[in-house]
Computed example of a mutant assay.
Amino acid sequence: MEIEFRVFETHEFRVGEDQDGTFEGVACQYGKKDSYGTTFHPGVFKRGIDKGSYAYLFMHSPYDPIGTFRADEQPNHLHIAGAYDDTQSGRDKRAMARSGSARELSVGFVRTDLPEWKKLAEMGDEDRADVLENIRSARLIEVSQITARMAAVPGSKLKTVRSALGALYTDTVGEPTLAERLAEYDREHGRDSAIAHQQEMIRRQRRAALLRLTAVGGA
């Protein structure tokens, strides 16, 4: 199961003025291409939303729940409403949301509209791009409050719910992601594809980041 994350530029995140700790916002916008080059379509979460409450996390960390929320799919977006926990962490994150230091929302989801990866690999460039770039069905996993400008790396997919920051500097372990499978297939078949170039760029970015961290650590 590959969990993906998206952050949308939106001002639709409001924290209640009262002491009850309520909040509401838009976690996902439809019909708008994001920084990953993908577009969520209306009805994407129609069958992928639980009726009960979800854990509201900070920076996608399952070890730092800060509240709960319920999700409701609207014609143009995924709306969430909930309340912060009456804990020190919940109160701190509420204060950060109100100050602006951490007031962005990031949605974690699993796509349910993708064919088996080998079938996708065999598609022509246009058909494959249409499938990958248009998200028509997905299951909501969680929504996180994240610090300003700390979105996950465009084009990356995370296998487990972990910090978006950690994903910048940690090599992927375990089974390869869908993007990695497709890139390897294209390389093996001599196919000059956009996804192969994308994965090479990500590898170079991670390698450069690791070299910078090593240099700093060794200073």
Rank of each mutant, 00 (worst) to 15 (best):
E12W: 12
G218L: 13
R103W: 11
A219V: 15
I66A: 12
F69N: 03
S89M: 06
V131W: 02
M201K: 12
E24K: 07
A121P: 08
Y185Q: 01
G52E: 10
P42S: 05
L168E: 11
T214V: 07
F45W: 00
K159M: 11
R94E: 10
P115K: 05
S163H: 10
R14S: 11
Y169Q: 10
S193H: 01
V161P: 14
R128Y: 01
T147L: 11
V26C: 12
R98Q: 15
S156P: 05
E2K: 07
V143Q: 05
P115M: 08
T214N: 13
L182K: 01
H60N: 04
R149G: 08
D85F: 10
L165P: 00
I195M: 02
I146Y: 08
P176T: 00
S35D: 13
A55Y: 11
V143G: 01
T39C: 07
M1S: 10
M1G: 12
D171S: 14
A208C: 04
K93A: 12
L211S: 14
I3P: 04
A121M: 02
R207V: 04
S163V: 10
E116M: 09
D64T: 13
I146N: 07
P154K: 15
A215K: 12
Q205D: 09
R91C: 11
A179E: 12
R98Y: 07
D72L: 03
H11G: 09
R136D: 03
Y84S: 07
H189E: 02
I146A: 02
G16H: 11
R203L: 07
D125E: 15
D127P: 03
E4K: 15
R6K: 10
I66S: 06
R212N: 15
T10Y: 03
L210S: 13
S101R: 12
G67V: 11
E133N: 06
R139D: 01
